[in-house]
Design a binder for these strands. Sequence first.
DNA 1: AACGCTAGCAACCGCCTTATG
DNA 2: CCATAAGGCGGTTGCTAGCGT
Length: 249
Amino acid sequence: MGRAPCCDKNGLRKGPWTPEEDQKLNDYIQRHGHGSWRALPQHAGLLRCGKSCRLRWTNYLRPDVKRGKFSFAEEQTIIQLHGVLGNKWSAIAAQLPGRTDNEIKNYWNTHLKKRLRQMGIDPVTHRPRIDLFDFSNMTRFFAPATLSHMSAHWANARLEALTREYLRLAAWRSAAMIGDQQNGTQADTLIIRSKLGADAFCRPDINAHVTAPHPNNWGQNPEIGTVTCSGSDEQIMLGKHADNSEQFQ
DNA sequence: AACGCTAGCAACCGCCTTATG
DNA sequence: CCATAAGGCGGTTGCTAGCGT
């Protein structure tokens, strides 16, 4: 079953580090650098395996480790990079100076994943969850027969709220679903490729106004709609195919 | 006050990759 | 080129503090 755990041999210590152990490790590395992690514990007078020392140093003792609450900008970076890279925590950490892969992984698992779920976004794919956003469901959802049996007002309000949150977090690479109550039209699940960048969607003064094909025309016409952002002169083109954002700009 | 539950996080484990001889 | 050791990574575990009952 794989390699034996390195700490099982020689009666090495496991578990939480004591302040004395931290001190020894810190002092040694400050004076000599870590060199070979394998050899370090013996030289530093620690009853730990090298792996444990490396982890303690990189995740906690290293002087450039930034501790404390993640900023909004850091959260955004993590979400965006996770959308591109997946669970490549070390790669994500490389873009966040002072943050460790372990810290980011923990933060993702305990905070961000939960938040995305609450917003109806699948934290693995970074797309709207199938049960909430799937296009085939949406076609049914907005069919006139269905609408006559439910509150269109509720549907649009929900749509708008979800859209705003989703755009705010994922605009620059996202698939998004948009509705336009005023024109009586709703759009498909759409890809947005924004010239504005993610920051634009964090600004409360910018509102996306959507022109999209009428549902009756869905399936006949891969027509691209537009989003006009108030507070900005730019338009964003929309299209239907989530896996080919290159065609939109 | 005591207990149970939960969230947060430090640390471990095992696998994979890279370096070295 | 191969075998082995060491480093690195991501998933998971388990402890603890805080909160609600």
